[in-house]
Computed example of a mutant assay.
Amino acid sequence: MTEDFVASAPVQALLDRASGVDAQGGDKRLKAITRDLVEAVMKTIVRHEVSESEFWAAIHYFQNGAAEFGLIVPGVGLEHFMDLLMDARDAEAGRTGGTPRTIEGPLYVAGAPLVEGDVNLTDDADDTGTLFMSGTIKGPDGAPVEGAILHVWHANSQGWYSHFDPTREQTPFNNRRRIRIGSDGRYAFHSKMPNGYSVPPQGATDRLMQGLGRHGNRPAHVHFFVEAPGYRTLTTQINFGDDPFAADDFAFATRDGLLPVPNRQGDTATIAFDFELQKADVASDEGFSSRIRAAA
């Protein structure tokens, strides 16, 4: 059987009906996207001679793994693909410069405390060293950005994030803050050192990675949103350049320009890192994507 089977009249008629192309009402864009997605799945089934048992096993996998979609999506490269696509669209539009974007990941929580000055992110005791990170938020002309808010979040030394920690030992918003930036554009924070982590053992993502002959490990990293009036909101993260998984992040978040090597002295590490924002062309550039995020 070849993929020409999908082009047959009965299958094409099925696609039209299933996607609502022949129905009144509904959203035309959603209909077109649904039709293309379902047709692509059909072609894949024919191309690889997927059996009925394999088909239902896949459906069962996704049903049971729904809670890990936030890990599966970056693990198969789709979240990084969106970054590459947005980069390409920027290039086509003549947008250049700025700190590279990279994946948000599924573990942001809205509503972190809004603070100022040299900020301590960590509320809980942790058996690890201390990270010191500082720098300047600048515009494309190199001038400091006024009125910025820097959202920061990272894991603890065990690789767990507050609000998502299965041990339930972390206090709310541990290692999470929003930092109000002054007119000089400077930020500074310190926290207990984050470590890299792996996806949940034997979970849906781990089983998929094993089936693909891959691992599910991430290097130590720190996540950021940077927002400021008149500028595009930046979603990014820095990965520790000396981490063993810095060059092999299962989530494809490591990018050139986002791999600072910490200056380690005993049990402390210092990172100097500047953010460069792009000017917003329209008001919507200043906001966040409509991704559904956790809120406390």
Score class of each variant (00 low, 15 high):
96 T>F: 11
101 R>I: 00
101 R>A: 12
102 T>W: 09
103 I>P: 02
104 E>I: 10
105 G>R: 05
112 A>Q: 01
112 A>D: 01
112 A>M: 02
113 P>F: 03
116 E>I: 13
116 E>Q: 15
117 G>D: 09
119 V>N: 03
121 L>H: 10
122 T>H: 07
124 D>P: 00
124 D>V: 03
124 D>T: 07
124 D>W: 02
125 A>W: 04
125 A>H: 15
128 T>D: 11
133 M>G: 00
135 G>T: 03
136 T>L: 02
136 T>K: 13
136 T>Q: 11
139 G>Q: 05
140 P>Q: 14
140 P>W: 06
141 D>P: 02
141 D>L: 05
142 G>V: 09
142 G>Y: 04
146 E>A: 15
148 A>R: 01
155 A>L: 00
156 N>Q: 01
157 S>Q: 09
158 Q>R: 14
158 Q>S: 09
161 Y>Q: 09
163 H>P: 00
163 H>E: 15
166 P>C: 06
166 P>L: 01
167 T>W: 02
169 E>A: 14
169 E>Y: 08
172 P>E: 07
173 F>P: 06
176 R>N: 12
179 I>F: 07
179 I>D: 07
179 I>C: 02
184 D>M: 09
186 R>E: 08
186 R>W: 05
187 Y>K: 05
187 Y>H: 10
191 S>Q: 11
194 P>R: 06
194 P>A: 08
197 Y>P: 00
198 S>H: 12
198 S>I: 07
199 V>N: 08
201 P>M: 04
201 P>V: 03
206 D>K: 01
207 R>C: 06
208 L>I: 01
209 M>N: 06
210 Q>N: 15
211 G>D: 06
219 P>Y: 02
220 A>P: 03
